[in-house]
Amino acid sequence: MNAVEIAGVRQCYGQMTVLHDLDLSLGEGEVLGLFGHNGAGKTTSMKLILGLLQATAGQVRVLGRSPNDPQVRRQLGYLPENVTFYPQLSGRETLRHFARLKDAAVQQVDTLLEQVGLAAAADRRVKTYSKGMRQRLGLAQALLGAPRLLLLDEPTVGLDPIATQDLYQLLDQLRQQGTSIILCSHVLPGVEAHINRAAILAHGRLQAVGSLADLRKEAGLPALIRASGLSQREPLLQRWQAAGHEARAVGEGGLEVVADNRHKLELLRQLLVPGQAQDVDIHQPSLEDLYRHYMLRADAQERV
């Protein structure tokens, strides 16, 4: 059974259609990254899964049931993008309140506060918390009751690099325990290693979904090969440019060549001839490159 199953969903606000024919699924123990520009439909998709919105058309199933089912809600954790909580309550009181509402054991609260690094500030009023601390409190809130499905909206906003790393490690740990996670984010670098699949939304349509390797293959984005310490750079450059490759000199005895998938191995072979390059560096298209590729394509389609 899939944790989330969205089939043929269309969502309209009045005259405006914000989601067109969305099909998306999330397996057990899978981490899906949901990326897109502002207004692409990320939040709408989240709200559909959370049962806060009723789809205009199509079907949404969460943990095999309707998203409104109280059973589902007890097993679901959600970190909203902007939540200030109750300023007059302390972090511990806030978590206790939410634990009671979720029917989760109140004893978890201390463990969770420890886990997100708020143990020392647990008895301070939330009013005095920084943005990052509120974010961590929100995360602890989402983890109440050991949810089977976790929805995180911009979880790294306001977190410093170390806290961000901690968050990603926590996600890896949860994934190993079988928690399914949807992660909505604008911050692309660093997230690649921690997601199984990426879904890219633009203008209310799903542009691409798949593992990074799948997306690279589908997008056909070339890799960039950098080599340094070449003894005979000029003849190589001339030969490659003549063959139609995008190659250019970099610094002293270095070069850079754009290598699409068909030619990548051949170009590497030529560089690895004894006496040629001292160091070779292959730069695969990153999530950011893929994101840009799909966004530009979506923009072009939208203009037609």
Partner: peptide, 13 residues
């Protein structure tokens, strides 16, 4: 305004 309404509505409540 505090963002807690949306959160509460995702709870079994």
């Amino acid at each position: 305004e505090g963002g807690t309404l949306m959160l509460l509505l995702t709870y079994p409540l």
